[in-house]
Nucleic acid binder design. Sequence first.
RNA 1: GGGCGCUUAGCUCAGUUGGGAGAGCGCCAGCUCGACAAGCUGGAGGUCACUGGUUCGAGCCCAGUAGCGCCCACCA
Length: 859
Amino acid sequence: MAADRKTLEEATRWDPSEVEGRVFAEWIEGGYFHPEAEGTAGESFSVAIPPPNVTGALHMGHALNGSMQDALVRMNRMRGRRALWILGTDHAGIATQAVVEKELRAEGKSRHELGREAFVERVWSWKEEYGSRIVEQYKRLGASCDYERERFTLDDGYVRAVYRVFKQLYDKGYIYRDNYMVNWDPGSHSAISDLEVENREVEDTLYSIDYPVEGSDRVLTVATVRPETMLADTAVAVNPGDKRYADLVGKHCVLPLVGRRLPIIADEHVDPEFGTGALKITPGHDPNDFEIGRKHGLEEIGAIGPDGRMTEAAGERFAGLSAAEAQKAVVAALREEGRLRAEEPYVHSVPFSHRSGERIEPLVSLQWFCRMDELAQPAIEAVERDEVRITPPQWKRVYLDWMREIRPWCVSRQLWWGHRIPVWYCDACEETIVAEREPERCGACDGPLRQEEDVLDTWFSSAIWPFATLGWPDDTPELRAFYPTSFLTTAREILFLWVARMIMTGIEFAGDVPFRDVYVHSVIQARDGRRMSKSLGTGIDPLEEIDKHGADALRFGLLAMSSTQDVRYSDAKVQQGRDLANKLWNASRLILMNVKFDQNQSHTNAAQGQVPAPVPVTPEDRWLLSRLERTIGSVTAKLEAYDFAHAATEAYSFFWSELCDWYLEIVKPRLYEGEEDVSATLLWALERVLALLHPLMPFVTEEIWRYHPANDGHLAVHAFPEPDESLVDVEAEAQVQEGIELTRLLRAWRDLVEAPAATVLPARADGEPQEFVGRLARFEFGDDGGEPIAAVGPVKVLASAEVDAEAVAARLERRREELRSEVGRGERKLGNEGFVAKAPPEVVEEERVKLERYRSELA
RNA sequence: GGGCGCUUAGCUCAGUUGGGAGAGCGCCAGCUCGACAAGCUGGAGGUCACUGGUUCGAGCCCAGUAGCGCCCACCA
């Protein structure tokens, strides 16, 4: 690779914008992200990306999630495993349909004018034009996905997989059609599942309404926040143990405004403490009432239609009004009839659509459902037995609790964009046919067929993502090579919506769990601690951050700020990443511009893909190599444990403080002199540091690697370092650590006595400090006599014109004060009989040693 | 209503089995020392939310209080 020395020598700042695009293109050209489908899943490493919506733009959640996945995928690719990061997008039924409908509205059209076929075509062309945007954005992040295997949840093969799953679930009796209470979303004009509903606190008015008891002058007063639903009431319920009403059970009320006779029934569900203890029952518009209604065989009246307007069943006075208008009208009418007993403000939680933001209208409609209990059972056991491990572990219980209470899933949606449900009806003989491929005629009567109008919930297709993307239901090489995938990272909000369902379908259809590990990552909040959200305007655009600081900076920052608990977005951490990239660049410049490296040797090595073995000749060399190997071991272990934050900060601090601040400063003279040993050590260390950091900061490390004389190809496919235990050297570590501490002491001392920064101070030392101590602290150690004016550790500082005697005296006194206080502390502690008797001996001994040291320094 | 989590330096966060409180940013002071001022050196700054308990010893363990956040839940 032709490395341009001029850039290396002249660029004193890391400039990501100039490099990232080029480097990414090189990776793609190398085909590194597209592994052959060979071998078994156990040998390879695979990850399925949580498929972003085609309508989506890269947000911080994607960026964090992607940084984590890429770190692990890259690490494993470097380890020589066939690493596949499955990429694709989700058709996102409601969201995408909404986007295109909005476009149409802007043109003054509606989807109904277009008709289904034309509308779907229109969505497809929208998808062709804009659908790849988010994929391009993932590239900006440096994500090493397999862009050649990109999938879409509506592409032909995928649809086939969805239909196969639907058919099999139907044949097993899990999927069925039923008239049932659903969450109707007036915004998307479709039913949605329980998981797509969010409850919000709302202040409503609680109305108390008198229902006269038939044949009596008594009334039952019921309370409701939705008086308009009374038009669909079919009973009044009281608690069976409620003595006040015991005599009324079995009798009837007369529904005001409507005149319908309502049976008074007894049901445990009614709380006698609430209000008057009488509950109006509206099986058509309230989930609880629906349950009670089914139990008691009550009529289900739909007074509110799917359009949010009152139906004929509401009576001609109200039919056609919106629910809100009807509420006003009903209240007014009740007031007029003297039936309205009370109105009071009432705060309660109300379901809203997570998709459209509109208030859910519970209503009864004909939908397709999937029974989940039997699918859930093996998925529960898989997690119980840790066949799927969930990290952090508290989420395991959350998952299990939810799965054990799982309820049927409403899978049909009244949309046009999506997988049209593979069910055909024959109107002639009322036959229902479920098939993977469209049948031509009715098998029973040969009559014409019409396909179900509804489409499947988007999450139905997402649920099979890990294997449908690999070619299931065919037995493909991809499936054999990459399923089950190795791990999955996700935000906890889709643990049930997506993760749980993948585990269920994976076991049921692909014969194994879809992944071995699930890592539930934290949520990055806005800087002010609020949720990042487009509607609140609190979002921070990852692409802007990449433009400003580079992808490496953002990746490092996100990983470093990630945690098991939610955190606020930290500009400082991203800046830390940017600074680290810059530091990597500059430290590498220092090394690469000054090492003495035999070019012939380099060619030999390049051919073999080797970096020359290090030649440690000084304790400092051994110290550095030892610290490096420990860091490699520790950072690697943390990555493997999904502890990205500590992995990142640990790599940072090794590189910055130990390698740059100490080692490079220590070896500069040797480096400038062109010493080959130190060159070898530095090149070795640089190679390992670059490789270690590459999964976290791929761009800057790859670019620097171009200039490394041992370069044998791209770093993206270079060997990931294995810690070499033989280089760990405890003695060297202790020895150099001592020198570092002494250097620090001396620096602090000279700063305190305000010695001019540039002057070298004379001193005499007990023993022989390491060479670098005097050089880095700017002390000259000699054998001269002369009166010491101060003692700093083992060093006696001698008098000189540069040092102000008064400052020294003051400093000395301050130090003695500190020492006296330390001695006092130690004496008190060791004088405590309990401590000496009960604390572990080594702790007591440590305390004795310290006390001794302080005493001797004070003496 | 149930469950989970959080409260540590001015800010954002770490603190592994209980043994003298850490990082990054910010702040103060000093440095054009042949990689880097996106740098180098030194420094200031904390009743670890509160109360009580266990312990020789508590940021860490236990109980409770307050505040904040998230998830689940059919109470009109």
